[in-house]
Design a protein around this nucleic acid. Sequence first.
DNA 1: AATATATATTGCAATATTACGATTAATGTA
DNA 2: TACATTAATCGTAATATTGCAATATATATT
Lengths: 109, 109
Amino acid sequence: MGITKTEIFTDEQNKLAVQLKAIAHPARIAILQHIIAAKACICGDLADELGLAQPTISQHLKELKNAGLIQGTIEGVSVCYCIEPKAWANLQKELNVLFSSYKDLNSCC
Amino acid sequence: MGITKTEIFTDEQNKLAVQLKAIAHPARIAILQHIIAAKACICGDLADELGLAQPTISQHLKELKNAGLIQGTIEGVSVCYCIEPKAWANLQKELNVLFSSYKDLNSCC
DNA sequence: AATATATATTGCAATATTACGATTAATGTA
DNA sequence: TACATTAATCGTAATATTGCAATATATATT
């Protein structure tokens, strides 16, 4: 078919998948890194820095925003994007739970 | 176009994106959780447990393996899949670097 | 009000992903 | 060797993503 069967998974699994998908693109990783380093937080600057067209950056920002990972504040004619602290911390926690649940011991092969 | 411009990003950004993409699907999250909890580590069992067809699980396992996150050991007629410890630890580290690089202080908005 | 600047949206073509039935390949057992 | 069991691959249809040019929207300035 081609459509993910979200109904057979838990809300946690689906939400984690959605947020990871938002990060799982090199351009969006680069955008997040730039925002965090405060090198650039507005669309046009990011487009210049990363070498992608303005509409492309705008779309990536939209996806990150839809996933709740960043927030935008209107500043005159431009928009300043930055990390959404709660979602960021929550995702970090969820990932830690997943990654820490594995101990080298319980490997069966 | 529709093709990611990997050449304008660093190897680290691209690799991280690939591995995150591998995890960024509810079925693959569920598979990893099952493998870690040692509830099931063979294709058929996972198919039964998760309610997806055997070829579908096989494809998801292949993607996780391609990303280097799991490894498969042939055990008679079946294959036991488990976490690839090094890649797992490395990804955990990379994610920690990314997530920890953000401090609530340096938000510009 | 007209102009400049910055972001968002639309539309499109190329590509990638998702899921599964049918089939094939590989190992173990009678 | 024939048969059973399990995993992988192939083929296909549906859907989603990626990137950009063109355009629209929104705010600031003159």
